[in-house]
Every structure is written in C-alpha cells, then in structure tokens.
Nucleic acid binder design. Structure first.
Lengths: 229, 229
DNA sequence: CCGGATCTTTAGAAAGTCTTTAGGACGAAT
DNA sequence: ATTCGTCCTAAAGACTTTCTAAAGATCCGG
C-alpha cells in the first residue's frame, strides 16, 4: 500500500456521505462515494477500494444485493453501517460476506478503529515476521535467519531474542528479562542471563565482540538496537 | 480443516463460559474454555484455535494484555465480548489487534454470524491432498505414498502426520499433539508421542536417523519441515 | 588513575530431553 | 481360542540444553 488506503462510501443520504467522507479524509484515507447500490458497484469496479462502507436501505439495488455482487469477485473488506439494527439484517449481511456491522448512531472513533482492524487483515503483510538489518525473526515459525542463513537457536535463546526484538530500541531491564523468560523459576541469577546472552550473540552477531543487534546497557540490561525495517 | 473449527472462549464468569460453550457446540464448533488471560494464553498455545472469543474485564491478566500477547505471534481472529461498551475500550482492543467487538447483552445468532464472518476469511481453499517433496498425503482417502510406494500407517501415525503436515513449517507443541491426537485421553504422556513419532519416521523417512520431513524441536515438539509443493 | 562492581567468555557438571528397543495389554478378525 | 496388528509402558543410552563457576575484560564514580 504505497499511498493512502482507498475507502468507498455507499449511502443514499447526501449528508451522511459528506460527513463520513470528511471524517475519513481527516483520518488519512482516500474517500470516494456512491449514492446507491448500482453506483456503488460501478465505483467499486473502477476504483478497486481497499475497503467499502455501505448502508443497507437504499433505493434501487440495496446493500444486500451490493454485498453479494461484490463478493462474487472480490474479497475486499466490507463494513455495513445501518439504522436497521434487527438481528436478521445483521445476520443476512454478515452471511452474504460482510465483515463487520455497525448500527447508527455510532461513534466516529469506533468506526475508524473498526476500519483499521479490517484493513490490518487485508494487508496480508504483517505476518508476524520481524525484519531487521540482515536479521529476520519469524515468531510463528520460531525461525531466525541472519544474512540468509538459518540459525539454530535453543528455546532460551529464542525467548531472549524475541523479548528484546519486540521491544526494539528500548532498554530491557535484566530483572524484566528474568521475569519474562524464566517466569518465576527461583534461583535464576543475572549471571545466567549473561551466559545465555553471550551464546545468543555468538550465533546471531557477525562480530560478537562488536555487537550490531544486541547492545549492553550497563547497570540496566540489554537493548535491541535497530528499528524494524 | 479435517474437523470442526476450534473456538477458544476466555471469560471469568463460569455461567457465561458454559452458556457460550453450549451454544457454540450446538452450532458445530469445537469449543474450549479458559477462565482468565493467563490460562487463555496457555490454552491458545496448546490448542491453536481457529478463533478466540474473549472478555476484557478479568482478574489477573486482562483481555487487553491477552490480545497483545497473542498478536505477538499469531493472526488468528479475535472477537471481543464485553459489557464495557466505552468507546475507548473498543478502540483500544481493536487497535491492539482484535478483529471485532460485541457488547453484552448480545444476541446469539448475531454472535454466530460474526464468528462465521471472521472464520470465512482465514479458511482459503484447502486441498485434500498434500504434496511434499516425494511425499503425498491424501487426507480424504487416508493414504500416504513416499517415492511412489504406498505406505501403510496406523490410525495414530496418520493422525500425527496429518496434524504436522497441515501445519507445515510451524512447530507443533507436544502438548498440542496430545490434545489433538489423543483428544483428552488422560494419562497420555510425552513418551507415548515420541514412541509413535519414532514409528512414523521409520516408515516415511528414507533415513530415519537424519529426518527429512519431521524435525525435532527440542523442548517444543516437532515440525514438518517443508512447505507444500 | 583506582577500586568496586558489572560484564564477557570459556569450560565442565548437572539435568533434562529424545530415540530406540522390547514386551505386555487390548481388541478385532479368523 | 488363536492370531494378528496396534497401542502403551518401561528402560537404556545418546544427545542436547541449561546452569554453575571462575578468570579476565570492561565500565563508572571519585
């Protein structure tokens, strides 16, 4: 997604159209509008939006028809906004392929949050892989590569690396490390952490003596240096 | 997906837990429950549900913490159910990674429709024949071939292989293996799993001492190494 | 610059996991 | 009733990971 996400608004009430349009633009989206189902479908084909907001009650082709027509060829997230709060409507819309349903009146911040939630999933990126300069950490697969080579880490080493990398840029106290990695195992000392940190650096640092990823913060703990890239 | 979708319910109210559990089972899901955030995270790691329902207000680790901890490694759909309808709560939960938010009281049919909407996305077309480098697994016919030769597997061995192969690339926790293959049969131990894994490897691995398909992840479990081809 | 503490690294002991084999229990089919 | 195949328990040995200890390097305040 190189520019702003495009959101298509379909509603027959010009006032609502304009107000939503303004709010979305203020929130950084590229908003376009259509006044009914027929125009909505046409606009959808032309603009291929990243997300569509639609009302249900509209003259001509209504929201239900619009949803099912779009779902015939696209999986773009669809969020329904409607005064009709009846269960049957919600269920029908959701089962036709809508992804979320908000009843009027609604709060704009909530609507924006729901839009963010939908867009987050659409962008198939965010695959729980942390990428730093030459170092990738796949949290789900529990795999780490450095400069393309796969690196075999023990359970403890991976836990350390994950903890630091998910707090990249911020120093992590050694007590916090003990609490999170050795959760409540008694007798774990600072030395233990250091030994494992040494082993971890030997594996992931090209030059362990001059660390590139994990920096020591004396009297504090450690810090993962780079921002994700 | 060889069986019903697994839904994890996290709520501190036993009445709600049980009622949701019954509704979901009646609707054809495999429901499991946890009473607070900590238990929820543990259950999540073991069962790897297809969707999670969670409350926000809970003793100990609350819903917000649970969501962010799970989002650190997984993108499984999360649906929040809460009495706290405040905008701030909704926005925070959604921005932490939740996919939908329902306020109590809610209607069961609507909840089920929202669950269907969330699950619809995750499940892309799943072929019933998995093909890996030299190894084919026909889930429907329950047949396995390696290098063209048909391999006779016992029920347990096939269940193990299917579980690993449908999660190819990701490590599968040994607790999860026990939960899914020996579903809640008490007294099943890690050693039991290992014995069967040994037998399975002897049959499908050209050189069992140097496994090509099933790799051991010490302290974690096992991983089916290759991506489908 | 010095003293006291922290930090790095190595090496080996301790603890735990993993593989494999063997044998008995159980159920289904003959 | 016997046979066959499957599943589970137990146990030995190999293997890996984790922890403890200690020596030298490094850092900081005074």
């Amino acid at each position: 997604m190189t520019s702003e996400p495009v959101v298509l608004i379909v509603d027959d009430d010009p006032g609502i159209r304009e107000s939503l349009c303004n709010e979305l633009r203020a929130a950084g989206y590229d908003a376009i509008t259509a006044a009914d189902g027929r125009a909505g479908l046409a606009a959808f084909r032309v603009h291929l939006p990243d997300l569509m907001l639609t009302d249900l009650a509209m003259p001509g082709a209504d929201g239900f028809a619009l949803i099912s027509q779009i779902r015939a060829f696209s999986r773009t997230p669809i969020l329904v906004i409607s005064v009709r709060g009846a269960d049957a409507d919600k269920i029908r819309a959701l089962d036709l392929g809508a992804d979320d349903f908000v009843t009027k009146p609604f709060s704009i911040p909530e609507l924006l949050a729901r839009i963010r939630a939908q867009l987050r999933r659409g962008s198939a990126a965010a695959s729980s892989v942390l990428t730093f300069d030459g170092l990738t950490i796949d949290l789900e697969r529990r795999r780490v590569t450095q400069g393309g080579r796969e690196i075999k880490l023990t359970r403890t080493e991976l836990a350390l690396l994950e903890l630091l990398a998910t707090h990249a840029g911020k120093p992590v106290f050694i007590e916090q490390i003990i609490a999170r990695v050795w959760s409540s195992a008694p007798g774990t000392t600072h030395d233990t952490v250091r030994v494992h940190m040494s082993a971890l650096r030997r594996k992931i640092e090209p030059d362990p003596a001059r660390p590139r990823y994990i920096v020591t913060e004396p009297w504090i703990g450690y810090r993962f240096i780079a921002e994700p890239s």
